[in-house]
Simulated assay, not measured.
Amino acid sequence: MEKFALLGDPASAPQATNDTAALLEPAALAQLGARISDQSLVPPGPLPAPDTPAASHISVIDPYEVYVSLVSGVGAFFGSKFRSTSGIVFNNAMSAFYDPAQASTGTLNLPLSGRRPLTSVSPAILMAPKVCGQRVVTGGSDASLLTQAVIRLADPRENLTSSLEAPRLHTSPDSVQLGIEEDRPLQFSSSVLRSLEAMGHETRGEEKPYPSCNGITKNYDQLSSHSDSRGGGTAVRF
């Protein structure tokens, strides 16, 4: 996908800011949308997507309408698998950069002193345009999984709990494989899976642990919170 070639740390590569703005232009979005079809797959880009890190997520709404979404982790499980003498586990964030020897097409996401790598972690705060409309505070370690949960909130038949507990497809822009969470209580219907396979996808069982997405919604003064059962968290109010 183009974004993995164009995007990078704007503090280290200022042109990334202009590239982001260009990708969000209506004409660019229309061009990308025209490539999406119910009958075929979007061709993979020249660079792979960054690996999904292992991370924890916290969503907060306080009585004064202050919203916090925080996603934090050490990269892969147990990070770099090295720790300090005091027991602090070091992250493996360097692995989120592209290898200069392999990124021959050019990318801003190359290792450089002080540069931050691309990541799929996605804290999200969504606000309806009207006063006291729906507010959503959520987030997760995988943007594509989080998007699937958030899109369901636009369906009036869904609520926060059903949106976060619904089945998800584990995808990667550089692969036709779709990971299926086989041991979850809610599953995609066989007709949906057959349609995806007819388009050229290959389905497989997704390995655990599954990334989770927690969230809080507020509509007028009505609060709803839910901790995804894929993780080990708890929704708390006080």
Results as ranks from 00 to 15, higher is better:
residue 4 F to Q: 00
residue 7 L to H: 03
residue 8 G to L: 02
residue 8 G to Y: 06
residue 10 P to R: 08
residue 12 S to A: 09
residue 14 P to R: 02
residue 18 N to E: 12
residue 19 D to I: 00
residue 19 D to K: 11
residue 19 D to T: 06
residue 26 P to Y: 11
residue 29 L to V: 15
residue 32 L to C: 07
residue 33 G to C: 04
residue 36 I to Q: 09
residue 38 D to E: 13
residue 40 S to M: 11
residue 41 L to G: 02
residue 43 P to F: 09
residue 44 P to C: 04
residue 47 L to E: 04
residue 47 L to Q: 06
residue 48 P to V: 14
residue 51 D to T: 14
residue 57 H to T: 13
residue 63 P to N: 12
residue 67 Y to T: 02
residue 69 S to W: 09
residue 75 G to W: 05
residue 78 F to E: 11
residue 78 F to T: 07
residue 80 S to T: 10
residue 82 F to G: 14
residue 82 F to E: 15
residue 85 T to D: 13
residue 91 N to C: 02
residue 92 N to G: 01
residue 96 A to C: 10
residue 98 Y to G: 05
residue 103 A to M: 15
residue 103 A to N: 08
residue 104 S to K: 12
residue 108 L to W: 15
residue 110 L to V: 09
residue 111 P to N: 10
residue 111 P to K: 07
residue 116 R to H: 12
residue 117 P to F: 13
residue 118 L to E: 03
residue 119 T to D: 00
residue 121 V to L: 12
residue 126 L to M: 14
residue 129 P to I: 06
residue 131 V to D: 11
residue 135 R to I: 13
residue 137 V to K: 07
residue 141 S to V: 07
residue 141 S to D: 10
residue 143 A to P: 00
residue 144 S to G: 05
residue 145 L to I: 15
residue 146 L to N: 06
residue 152 R to W: 02
residue 157 R to I: 07
residue 157 R to L: 12
residue 158 E to C: 04
residue 163 S to T: 01
residue 165 E to F: 00
residue 166 A to D: 03
residue 167 P to G: 00
residue 168 R to L: 05
residue 168 R to W: 04
residue 169 L to Y: 01
residue 169 L to W: 05
residue 173 P to W: 06
residue 176 V to E: 09
residue 189 S to N: 13
residue 189 S to Y: 07
residue 190 S to T: 15
residue 191 S to H: 11
residue 198 A to H: 07
residue 200 G to A: 00
residue 201 H to M: 05
residue 209 P to D: 09
residue 209 P to Y: 04
residue 210 Y to Q: 08
residue 215 G to S: 02
residue 218 K to H: 02
residue 221 D to F: 11
residue 223 L to T: 05
residue 226 H to L: 02
residue 229 S to V: 13
residue 230 R to S: 05
residue 236 V to Q: 08
residue 237 R to T: 15
